[in-house]
């Protein structure tokens, strides 16, 4: 039974926390519904990041619970159906700044190890 368990755990996706940042960043353009957010991230990264719905929706609800985003049912401009639109809150904006700087630090740290500059050797 333990072997079964391990396999499931190996199916890791994005780096933990990165998805949240990407969603917040996407919402900076304006309110969007789940499908749009997923598609946007996928398109912008030239399909490099395949959006897993299994992670996207839980992430959206998690962000909503933390009041970084709020949701509202609205009719889409081009379709006569209602979608659940998410919108960035003030708190979410601040969080985005925090996440961004954290990510930057992280990327720089990783970069320094991977591609060391000459004088540091």
């Amino acid at each position: 039974m333990s072997s079964v368990k391990k396999q499931t755990q190996q199916r890791a996706n994005l780096l933990q926390g990165t998805l949240d940042m990407l969603i917040l960043r996407t919402l900076l353009y304006g309110p969007a519904h789940g499908h749009q957010i997923g598609k946007h991230i996928q398109r912008t990264t030239n399909d490099f990041l395949q959006m897993q719905h299994g992670s996207l929706y839980p992430a959206l609800h998690r962000l909503e619970k933390r009041s970084w985003i709020v949701s509202k049912w609205e009719t889409a401009p081009d379709k006569n159906r209602e979608f659940k639109y998410y919108q960035l809150t003030e708190k979410g904006r601040k969080q985005l700044v925090v996440e961004e700087s954290k990510w930057k630090q992280m990327a720089e740290a990783v970069a320094r190890v991977m591609w060391p500059e000459a004088e540091e050797i």
């Binding site: 719905h53 609800h61 619970k65």
Partner: peptide, 18 residues
């Protein structure tokens, strides 16, 4: 297929709700 297992998604969201 793209959505995958919706029940699983719901379960994960339930967990997110606590």
């Amino acid at each position: 297929r793209a959505f995958g297992n919706t029940t699983l998604i719901r379960e994960h969201i339930h967990e997110a709700w606590g």
